[in-house]
Simulated assay, not measured.
Amino acid sequence: MEKLPPLNALRAFVAAGASLSFTKAAQELGVTQAAISQQVRLLEQDLGTPLFIRHHNALHITEAGAQLLPRFQDALFAISAVSEAVRTRRPPGILRVSALPGFAQFWLLPRLKTFCDANPDIEVHLVTSHRTADFPHGDADIAIRLGTAWPGLDATFLISAEITPACSPQLLSRGRGLRNPEDVLHYTRLHSSTDPDDWRKWLTAANVSADDIDRGPRLDSFVLAIGAATAGLGIAIIRRRLIAEDLAKGRLVAPFGLNVRIPGGWHVVHPHENERRSEVRRFKEWVVSTAQREP
């Protein structure tokens, strides 16, 4: 067999080519941006042609890269499909569910007992991940992700995603008060590294401008951001559906009525063929119907 390009380099190129962003590719594959850049350079050296043009903060794909991208995507999908066909030879009744950490902890887990009680023959294995989809890696049968499109996968809308500032009642009582959106500028603002532009989106919608919008502690997940807000560290910009219970029980307060909807929302995603399994169908029907019943 002739020499093949390195598999990790192919995965890095496909992820970067699909998003035209080394940063997003790094988040998808769970590595650093530098690692993506290095793997792409290795592939370019192996093929003897540039695949991207890097210009300031923009990434453009070359003609050669555009021709190779769909072919490499198809090749990786074929490898994934063959590998998954082997992995799925396991005892029936086990369902591997993948969800984003914040969604898993604050939305799915409080409701999961209902599904387990109604389906005692299904053993749920829940994992959390920030990757776009785990199926190529053999980690899940069905996943819940936040976004707009997942090429090659079936996607069913679950819940819309709206962002709003939230903080502890104690923090609110100690400060200058939050009567108007611009008042958040007088407090410590907490940022989630997974969605660093959320404060900017909300303040723009509120017609508030500032030179130091990005200033403040950064947490690497919404789980930590919610925890930090609850502990009184500052004001977090949070997906409102994830803190419904905290708001109801008074652990957090959302001082403003302005909820900014972000594109997409949470979706249930899976390869088309996975829905042939009863476990996948039943979980999908349950989670979608549960979300539809709630306001």
Rank of each mutant, 00 (worst) to 15 (best):
K284T: 15
R239C: 12
R241P: 09
A133G: 06
L68Y: 01
R189H: 13
F72M: 10
F256D: 13
R240M: 02
G48W: 04
E294A: 11
G175K: 01
L224W: 04
N207R: 07
A248S: 11
V268H: 10
V127G: 09
E279N: 07
P5M: 12
L69C: 11
G93F: 05
I213C: 07
D183S: 12
P5G: 15
A64H: 12
A225C: 15
F72V: 09
S209L: 04
T194P: 09
P151M: 05
F72H: 04
G250E: 10
D117S: 15
L242Y: 01
F77P: 07
W199V: 04
V268K: 11
F115M: 08
R277D: 15
R54G: 01
T114S: 13
S19E: 11
H267G: 06
W286M: 01
S193F: 00
D198G: 01
G102I: 08
R282F: 00
R277G: 06
I53K: 05
I144C: 06
T164K: 09
V268F: 05
G65K: 06
W202C: 10
V288F: 07
Q73S: 07
A228V: 06
G175D: 06
E44T: 00
A18Y: 00
L76T: 04
A205M: 03
R87Y: 08
H60K: 03
R111M: 12
E294Q: 13
R96L: 03
M1F: 12
D212R: 07
A225K: 05
A85I: 00
N119K: 10
S278G: 07
I235W: 05
T230G: 01
T194Y: 03
H56W: 01
A64T: 09
P50G: 08
I163H: 04
F106N: 01
S21H: 02
I159S: 04
T230E: 12
N180L: 13
V208E: 15
N119M: 06
P181G: 08
T88G: 01
F115W: 05
P217T: 05
A133T: 08
I262F: 06
A140M: 00
A143R: 13
V208T: 13
R145P: 05
L252Y: 14
E245P: 03
R200I: 03
D141V: 01
A210W: 01
E44W: 03
S173N: 13
E279Y: 02
L185K: 13
Q73P: 00
G30L: 14
F106E: 04
A291E: 15
A35R: 00
V288D: 08
L51Y: 02
R240L: 01
I226C: 08
G30A: 13
D46L: 00
N119V: 03
L108W: 12
D211R: 02
H191D: 14
D141L: 04
L171Y: 00
F115Y: 13
S193N: 05
P151C: 07
E162Y: 03
V124Q: 06
